[in-house]
Amino acid sequence: MTASRWIPLENNPEVLNSWAYKAGLVSSDSGFSDIYGFDDELLGMVPRPVKAVLLLFPISSAFEERRKEEDQKIIDEGSLNDKGVVLWIKQTISNACGTIGLLHALLNADVSLDPDSPLAKFAKECKDKTPEERAKFLETTPLFASIHAEAASTGQSVVPTDLDTDLHFCCFVEVSVDGTSHLVELDGRRAGPVDRGVCEDLLIDTIKFVKDTYVAKSASIHFSMTSLGPPEF
């Protein structure tokens, strides 16, 4: 990790939309909304169509073991990043997983961006760069550091003095792979994008995967999810 360290973001729509709209997401087109639970009634409240899902989860020893195994498979066999069908960024800034998750969501989803915005400029600069080069550009560009700090200060919690945290963001998007829709997990701490298989409904398939793979194997209650879709205005 670089010496650079940011304030952790909260996974709530107020914070995420503050970041996204300052960075260039067109507010009349899309926004982030809470996913309050896994049952059908609560999922029915999520604005559709869902274009990306952000998950905030507690890092555990069991998760780290699974991550190492999957990362080694990615290193050995390659990933969707090599096919150029998804834009993935390696995380090198401590506590920047919220911004990395937002970038993964907004740059891989079908959303409208202000063409002169930081998001549009970042996408243009990073299009032909490697994930490591994208990470270095994020470290050195002023495009997002101040936006991240402003968004972090709009949350419901007091800004922590101890910036160490075991909570981490990842993003789920739907990607076309050889003409078939796949559920893809994007996490800057990984060795690359993780293909989670054929996707028929982004929200439902993500919920099932998170329940089976994250929640069911953890004793923690510190999970939260938000969706990117039509704005709730």
Results as ranks from 00 to 15, higher is better:
F57L: 11
L9G: 02
P231H: 07
T226V: 04
D116Q: 07
L43C: 09
K68F: 09
E200F: 02
G98R: 07
K90T: 08
R48C: 05
E150T: 03
R196K: 12
T206G: 05
S61V: 14
F169C: 03
V53L: 15
P118S: 05
L42F: 11
I74D: 11
R5W: 06
V177H: 04
E139S: 01
V215G: 05
S181T: 05
E77F: 10
Y214G: 06
D195Y: 07
Y36C: 13
F169M: 06
D164N: 14
V158Q: 13
S153K: 13
Q156F: 14
C171H: 00
V46Q: 07
G24Y: 13
C171V: 02
V46N: 05
F233R: 11
Y21F: 15
C199V: 04
L167E: 14
S220R: 06
D82P: 01
P230Y: 11
G78Q: 10
E232W: 12
K121Y: 01
T99A: 07
I89W: 11
R189V: 10
S79L: 03
E150R: 00
I59R: 13
I35Y: 13
F63V: 04
V177C: 08
N12M: 11
D178P: 01
W19V: 00
M1E: 14
D110R: 14
E174G: 09
L119Y: 01
A152V: 01
I59Y: 10
D162I: 13
V210S: 04
E185P: 06
I59H: 06
L87N: 12
N17R: 01
R189E: 12
K217H: 15
F32Q: 04
V85M: 04
E69F: 09
G98D: 01
V86M: 02
L138F: 01
G37F: 15
E133F: 00
M1R: 10
C199R: 11
T141Y: 00
I204W: 10
E14P: 03
T226H: 03
L183W: 11
S27F: 04
E150D: 12
D166E: 14
L113K: 04
S146F: 07
L143P: 02
R48H: 06
V194E: 15
V215A: 03
D110N: 13
H222N: 15
S176H: 08
E70T: 09
